[in-house]
Design a protein around this nucleic acid. Structure first.
Lengths: 146, 146
DNA sequence: CGGACTGTCACGCAGCGTTAGCGTTT
DNA sequence: TAAACGCTAACGCTGCGTGACAGTCC
């Protein structure tokens, strides 16, 4: 199967925009979006005759989703899997067995997310502590001068 | 000048340990510590005759300091500068002018730290929001099955 | 037609992980 | 002496940034 195909176009004819507009809209660099393509994370719905990547709103949603995932520190590979997992679940029911598998995956990502949040909190605490230390240094040395 | 020389040994004869023990104590990998050396960030106080890096408690403190700095997202280069800045201030007073320069640097790092903390908070918020989204997906699909 | 936009290499960078092959310490 | 431990290359990996050079769009 092709890495991460966009699900069914929602309704009317999808607007197709080039990478530049897509980039501006989601707030990612063109280079980043191309990289996501190369990595098989988000494959544009189509190409122009000349070879330009064409993105739909659906693609934009995925890009936005990935942008939101980034702070969780997942690798592109992991995000790719999560995306396909979500898509698969959102699409057809398939076998009950398959559903179970994908639900499991989703749950695993949920746990991973919580773990990430935990370490983000730790990092924040450490960072704050360190900032304090810095300020103490500053005050100490400032006193002697002023 | 040698990148980041360890300041004066505090009191008695410093215990000198090899990289393995140092690594275990501060909770950094051997490879990381070697990398910090190569980068001129933390140069071991001495070498054995055979060429083994020998670290003192003072070195350990620096390693621990760097470990605490990491969550702030500074580059090794920046941390190196910050270390030397702190050392310089802690050591001799030098010229008033020099003091001012280094105090300025310290202040700049303080601001940078605050900025980092801000973005860490943002990331945390985004991460939490995303975790929520994941859980909603989970519940939605779980209902249909259970 | 021209200028903005996009395409594909392909190298660079941080921060280590990971062999590989070979000395050092104890 | 041998088991641990360490050393120096040197390549690998992730996630893009940054050209360079050429084709596409409007």
């Amino acid at each position: 199967m092709a890495a991460t195909g966009t699900p069914a176009p929602s309704g009317g004819q999808a607007r197709r925009m080039q990478i530049g507009e897509a980039a501006e809209r989601v707030g990612l660099s063109i280079r980043t979006i191309r990289h996501y393509h190369d990595a098989g994370l988000i494959v544009p719905s189509a190409r122009s005759e000349g070879g330009f990547r064409l993105y739909t709103d659906s693609d934009l949603h995925r890009l936005a989703l990935v942008k939101r995932m980034k702070p969780l520190g997942f690798t592109l590979e992991e995000m790719r899997e999560l995306l396909t997992t979500i898509d698969t679940l959102a699409a057809e029911p398939r076998t009950d067995g398959e559903r179970a598998v994908f639900l499991d995956r989703l749950a695993m990502y949920g746990e991973a997310a919580h773990a990430r949040i935990g370490s983000l909190r730790e990092q924040l605490a450490i960072a704050e502590g360190f900032a304090d230390t810095l300020h103490q240094h500053l005050e100490r040395h400032t006193q002697q001068v002023g």
